[in-house]
């Protein structure tokens, strides 16, 4: 069985509540008895964790800072909850014409995924750990379910296209070396400022900082970021979604009114006949 299929089987098994509870107990035990997490010292702070989307909103910035043990590496992940996504596929029809040839459906894929690390991921983490914490595109590829695909090559091709599409929309980004780190009293202070794209829709986002040593994650901490619509933006968006008929009528009446208004102003201005 391929690693891809194993991963998918894992996802399916994880959907049963009993299994989830068992896994939770094991992870709990693992953390307290065997891991080195208890020895790490990590505090994080997220600046600007409530992004207000108002009428003149054009994106924002979010900074993540904190203190971790010296001699460790850091990985900072900002992601939206996993969801179902549908995109349109372009392909060749009749041999030479590029057009939409159907839909591509993705399960367990985040709409936004930013990953910043102190050094290159492959140099600081082994692949099991990356899979466990969903760090990096290869782990995400093993985690996400894509349909319809013919075979693994096809799946891989469409996953790459998906990343390309998300990166062009500024919703996916992976970098290394952008986190600034300063040593102080046997600890290290870290800081990164991330541009928050206006393309990111309103919703909840999770910031996770992983402390990495000897190719393993030894500690992690999480904070939430909420992007929410406020004021006129919120009022209009609520109305469009919940009071469609009224919203439609207002849209039509406003357009008619403006059309007549401008027509009359110009009619007077040019003196008509």
């Amino acid at each position: 069985m391929s690693t891809l299929k194993i991963q998918k089987l894992k996802n399916k098994i994880m959907e049963y509540p009993g299994i989830r509870f068992l896994m939770f107990c094991l992870v709990f035990l693992d953390i307290f008895l065997f891991s080195e997490m208890a020895f790490s010292d990590l505090t994080i702070k997220v600046n600007h964790d409530r992004i207000k989307i108002n009428f003149v909103y054009h994106g924002s910035s979010v900074s993540v800072s904190g203190v971790a043990d010296s001699g460790t590496d850091l990985v900072i992940k900002i992601a939206s909850p996993e969801s179902h996504q549908t995109l349109r596929k372009k392909g060749k029809a009749a041999g030479f014409l590029w057009m939409n040839i159907g839909e591509l459906k993705l399960e367990h894929a985040s709409n936004l995924y930013f990953l910043h690390s102190t050094r290159k991921l492959d140099d600081i983490l082994n692949s099991d750990e990356m899979d466990k914490f969903l760090i990096g595109y290869p782990s995400m590829e093993r985690h996400v379910e894509i349909t319809p695909v013919d075979n693994e090559n096809d799946e891989s091709k469409w996953f790459n296209e998906f990343v390309k599409y998300k990166e062009s929309s500024k919703l996916y980004d992976i970098s290394s070396g952008k986190i600034s780190v300063t040593d102080k009293d046997g600890k290290q202070n870290f800081y990164i400022q991330v541009d928050w794209p206006y393309q990111a829709p309103p919703g909840d986002y999770l910031v996770t900082v992983y402390v990495v040593k000897d190719k393993r994650v030894i500690d992690k901490a999480e904070k939430n970021v909420l992007a929410e619509e406020v004021g006129i933006v919120k009022a209009l968006s609520d109305m469009a979604n919940n009071k469609g008929a009224l919203y439609g009528m207002i849209s039509v009446i406003a357009a008619l009114g403006t059309g007549f208004g401008v027509g009359m102003i110009f009619g007077k201005g040019t003196g008509a006949h």
């Binding site: 039509v252 406003a254 357009a255 008619l256 403006t258 059309g259 007549f260 110009f266 006949h273």
Partner: peptide, 18 residues
């Protein structure tokens, strides 16, 4: 299409006057 409602109202009005 919402925008066309306004533009065609404005245009129809102007043409109706003519």
């Amino acid at each position: 299409s919402n925008q066309i409602v306004a533009a065609s109202t404005s245009g129809t009005y102007a043409h109706w006057k003519l």
